[in-house]
């Protein structure tokens, strides 16, 4: 019951394309795999097209003061040793734009055009951080650095426990 009312509220208050000016039948095709739509500008047309976006982003609070959904508070990670991470899988997560997407901000070996926001991860093992500290850093960076821009991957549910273990294993392999 609550979920339904929330969806209706958000749609009305925030003017999202799912509930503002369009009827749901116009906007959502039952065959459509996602609830997130992307505007597409069609040349020489007075109408704006909305096409399915690659990801479903509807669970997340949107840019609107009236959105009643809260963001997760900073969380301490529950890390249990041993690590048991797969560095090869970790690298795939680091490079995947839908998952870790680390390379957008950090320099990673083997990537010619990395971002410059975060610190360089080329020789991460030389920092001699413990597995538990790196795990916390990825799980929710707000605990140790409240002003950091990095997303709290664990607290927001972007990466699972095993995903983070794999990324830690990969970072510990960068000598």
């Amino acid at each position: 019951m609550h979920t339904i009312w929330r969806v209706i509220l958000v749609a009305f208050l925030c003017g999202s394309p799912l509930g503002y000016g369009y009827t749901p039948g116009e906007m959502v095709d039952s065959k459509m795999p996602t609830k997130t739509l992307m505007p597409k500008v069609k040349v020489d047309s007075g109408r704006l097209e909305w096409v399915p976006y690659a990801m479903d982003l509807s669970p997340w609070p949107t840019l609107c003061e009236d959105d009643p959904r809260a963001m997760p508070r900073p969380q301490h990670a529950q890390y249990v040793a041993p690590l048991r991470g797969d560095a090869v899988r970790g690298r795939m997560i680091v490079m995947d734009t839908r998952r870790g997407n680390c390379v957008t901000c950090h320099e990673i070996p083997g990537e010619d055009w990395p971002g410059t926001f975060g610190r360089k991860l080329n020789h991460y093992k030389q920092l001699r951080m413990s597995d538990a500290d790196i795990y916390q850093q990825i799980y929710d960076v707000r605990i140790t650095a409240p002003r950091a821009v990095m997303p709290p991957f664990g607290a927001l549910g972007i990466l699972s426990d095993q995903d983070i273990r794999d990324v830690v294993a990969y970072l510990q392999s960068l000598e």
């Binding site: 003017g15 394309p17 503002y20 000016g21 992307m38 505007p39 704006l48 982003l57 949107t62 840019l63």
Partner: peptide, 21 residues
């Protein structure tokens, strides 16, 4: 429309152009 593209890149549903926010 630029805001809508930004919204999707940052990971939340785009609003309709002309929405109050």
């Amino acid at each position: 429309i630029r805001f809508a593209q930004c919204s999707l890149d940052l990971g939340f549903n785009a609003l309709k152009p002309g929405s109050p926010a």
